[in-house]
């Protein structure tokens, strides 16, 4: 809006034509950015200019732009989602930057997330982990009344804390080992906490963690960087819980 001073920024962005292209950094300038622009709206502006110049716009994943779908995925100055507390890139606002800043923009980098183009990577490995056991094997219909099994608030809340994961993969992108422990533990914990999920808990944790390894994610060495990167603030206590579930599954 007019009542806001505008800023000019220097962007150093990872460009990669396709999965096989080695890729490289390119430099762009973002002009007339107000602090009400969201980070993605800032990129929209840059892209509009690029298109009019007949150059290829920067390709990045995004959809809901309100921090819930988990599609947006950019590492900004080395930090997934830009590193501000509980924030996705799409919710990052330019008021956090100042005129003249230089911003590095890169895709998630992990062996399990091959890059498809520019800032877009393939996260289907996360789906595979869920497919391995991230569910209760209930059938459609023929289930008991919602109040048949009581779940005290603290338990429901704890489970909800884990369930908030949006599957963005920032935990993997942030983890120096490219491990998917936080993502996996969130689902394992959500279900293990609830009576509905307890029955399959052992089989679930084994299946999901094995798939984690098969998909090429690294192991955890308790760096806790994942929690810092997580836009939903998923707590590493759930990793501890998953380790516990794993040990229980052994005996």
């Amino acid at each position: 809006m007019s009542d806001h001073k505008t800023m000019t920024l220097k962007l150093i962005v990872w460009r990669q034509k396709n999965a096989n292209d080695p890729g490289k950094f390119e430099t762009y300038t973002a002009k007339n950015i107000t602090d009400h622009h969201s980070f993605l709206e800032m990129l929209d502006c840059v892209n509009e200019d690029l298109i009019l110049e007949g150059r290829e716009p920067i390709v990045f994943d995004h959809d809901c732009r309100e921090g819930i779908c988990g599609t947006c995925s950019q590492v900004i100055n080395g930090l997934p989602h830009g590193g501000s507390e509980r924030t996705t890139v799409c919710q990052l606002h330019m008021r956090l930057f100042k005129d003249g800043d230089t911003i590095y923009i890169e895709p998630w980098r992990a062996r399990a997330f091959p890059i498809l183009k520019d800032l877009v990577c393939d996260r289907s490995a996360l789906d595979k982990i869920i497919q391995a056991g991230g569910y209760t094997s209930c059938h459609t219909g023929g289930v008991s009344d919602g109040n048949a099994i009581l779940i005290p608030k603290p338990v429901a809340d704890d489970s909800m804390d884990a369930a908030e994961c949006i599957g963005c993969g920032a935990c993997v992108a942030g983890c120096p080992n490219g491990a998917a422990m936080l993502f996996t533990s969130a689902k394992v914990s959500q279900l293990a906490l609830l009576p509905q999920g307890k029955g399959e808990a052992k089989a679930r944790v084994l299946a999901m963690t094995n798939t984690m390894t098969d998909c090429g994610f690294g192991n955890c060495s308790n760096h806790y960087e994942c929690q810092a990167a997580c836009p939903k603030g998923i707590d590493v206590k759930f990793i501890a819980r998953m380790n516990r579930e794993f040990i229980n599954a052994q005996i």
Binding site: Y135, T136, C138, T140, G141, V143, S144, D145, G146, N147, I149, L150, I151, P152, K153, P154, V155, A156, D157, S159, M160, A163, Q190, L191, L194, Q196, G197
Partner: peptide, 22 residues
């Protein structure tokens, strides 16, 4: 009504009170 039951069975953590009711 079946929908709520279905979702609970899937492990949807609906808000509950301290006694455990939805």
């Amino acid at each position: 009504n079946n929908i709520i039951d279905q979702c609970v069975a899937q492990g949807v953590p609906f808000a509950r009170d301290y006694a455990g009711y939805l």
